[in-house]
């Protein structure tokens, strides 16, 4: 089976900024593939190239085995794209937006209703409401419906859950799972690490480069070294103390704990705990923890920068 998306040595620069530096990866058919990375990593540029909106400087990019430059017209018929910012007609109603996007693809709402039914039933009560007056979560659902209404084979979602409340985010990802089961390949970007865990595979992107590609379960294995979670009521002082400690390679805040990675080969986290306690952090809570995607990402980032 041909991959849904195949990218080889793709590069793209804007004047002075290198947005993408010779990246390569494949997304299989029916795969939910996540792009994780901070703002400015080049995710949106990658989406614009894949959706035939921007031309690459070099490299081979194929979607459903069609070239994004030569076969752009055919590709446009067979993909769905949800840009990062809400881009439906705010002054048209929910039903009118959906109808418009169905008709310009030469189809009707009825024809592909099965695909969007689960999502659209939630929108139906607001059918006659202008899209601009929907809540953030509802807007995203409508945008997803509009991107799906022509039954695309590949779906591109650029940060679909940014600015959406946690409940809607969860629902949104459940929908993606269902769409994946329909056989639609999905490329989704997100700045949220918890969402990354819901993908089949993820690529960590930073400054136009892919740091690592793996499944969420195995990507944790990429982390090397010992990781200690610590907490005190003087968090900021604790953070600076740990960052300056010779045993600590890096330290970041994760929720209510600080995660400190020890230097390569050093497994003796208890002596670090003692040391910190002696420095006046009497209420210190510390335990060894397993690395999550975020930790892996941070480690890869600092290695890439070194």
């Amino acid at each position: 089976m041909k991959p849904a998306i195949s990218i080889q040595n793709l590069s793209k620069s804007y004047k002075e900024v290198e947005a993408l530096k010779s990246i390569s990866f494949e997304v299989k058919q029916g795969e939910l593939f996540g792009l994780i990375g901070p703002d400015g990593a080049g995710k949106s540029t990658l989406f614009r190239i894949l959706t035939t909106l921007t031309l690459a400087d070099s490299g081979i990019v194929r979607v459903m085995d069609m070239d994004v430059v030569q076969d752009f017209r055919e590709i446009r018929n067979r993909i769905g794209y949800m840009p990062g910012r809400f881009s439906l007609y705010q002054d048209l109603t929910v039903a009118e937006n959906l109808e418009f996007f169905a008709t310009i693809f030469g189809t009707t709402i009825e024809e592909n209703y099965d695909l969007i039914r689960d999502i659209y039933v939630q929108l139906e009560p607001f059918k006659t409401r202008p899209a601009g007056k929907l809540s953030g979560g509802m807007k995203q659902k409508l945008a997803l419906c509009c991107a799906l209404i022509h039954k695309p084979e590949v779906l591109f979602l650029d940060e679909p859950t940014t600015g959406v409340d946690p409940v809607s985010r969860k629902e949104f990802w459940q929908m993606l799972k269902r769409l994946k089961n329909e056989g639609i390949a999905i490329l989704v970007s997100t700045p949220y690490m918890d969402e990354a865990a819901l993908c089949d595979r993820i690529a960590l992107v930073q400054k136009g480069e892919i740091l690592s590609i793996a499944s969420p379960d195995t990507i944790n294995e990429a982390f090397h070294g010992t990781l200690v979670a610590m907490k005190s009521h003087r968090m900021y002082e604790l953070l600076t103390t740990l960052r300056n400690h010779p045993k600590v390679a890096s330290c970041y805040a994760f929720g209510e704990f600080l995660n400190a990675a020890l230097m390569d080969g050093d497994e003796d986290w208890q002596s670090l705990e003692m040391d910190i306690r002696h420095k006046g952090f009497d209420d210190l809570v510390a335990y060894e923890t397993t690395a999550g995607i975020e930790n892996v990402f941070m480690q890869l980032l600092s290695q890439a920068e070194a």
């Binding site: 959706t51 035939t52 909106l53 017209r73 446009r76 018929n77 993909i79 794209y81 840009p83 910012r85 809400f86 881009s87 439906l88 007609y89 705010q90 996007f101 310009i104 693809f105 030469g106 509009c146």
Partner: peptide, 13 residues
């Protein structure tokens, strides 16, 4: 400005 042109550009229009 509304970004709707992006949606039209990825359509067969």
């Amino acid at each position: 400005e509304m970004g709707t042109i992006e949606q039209l550009n990825v359509s067969p229009i």
